[in-house]
Amino acid sequence: MSLSLLITYILIGVLAGIFGSILGLGGGMIVTPILVLAFNLPIHYAIAASIIAVIGTSSGASVAYLRDDLLNVRVAMFLEIFTTIGALIGAVLVGIFQPAWLNAFFGLLLVYQGYAMWQKIHNKKADELASKDDKIAAKLKLDSSYYNKLEQKNVSYHIQRVPLGALIMFGAGFASGLLGIGSGGFKVFAMDSVMQMPLKPSSATSNFMMGVTAAASAVIYFFNGTLQPLIVAPIAIGIIFGSTLGSRIMPHLPNKLLRTIFIPVVLIAGIQLIIKAFGINLY
């Protein structure tokens, strides 16, 4: 392998790591299309590489998010029950289900999420928080606070609508198990829009959770030889540096900017799933 190719892989990783850690999406969404379109790698090798990218982003970024107290460990652990059960059931049902209508369904959901985010940008009350306690959230000790670096103040928040959030998390796990898509978008949506957790803790917590969901399938890819170490390892090294960098930038970015980057990303992912339902693969 040439030195220039090696450096290219590392740089792809750095880019995916920064992007994935800032949005809470994991960074797999960048790695797969680049490897397929620019490097002509078969799709299953690219997906395996992107799973490792997700794990790298998750672990690399969470170090800083834990230290900054941005991440809500209890929310993550509680919701991981539902994502892991969803992923397990999804993975078992692969091959039994016709995924066409499911692709369309999850695609539409992502497009709706883009719309919801767009509404939030134009709504001045978007970052207003729930003021009342929720019974279930109180019982599970989910309420917490984080330090807002932009406004330099501590923000306490109350988690709402836990059952609906848990249901969406189950769906997110199910989608990643069955369709092999990274489901960070749904995770951020469940926490930010449904459970009324502020955007940055939602994104950081989504990032943290993604590593666990991805690890289960990564083990399988490792032992069945789908991981190409010459490609995956340099990307992973880059990812870890990128996500460490991204997790230091994110607390300083305004919410509006984060949402503005988020919208085209979920829209593209959604539209791609919808046209896949009609049998068209972009890559």
Partner: peptide, 12 residues
Amino acid sequence: LMMGIFILILTP
């Protein structure tokens, strides 16, 4: 390279 990837996978 493979063992490094394996350590990364085990971390979560």
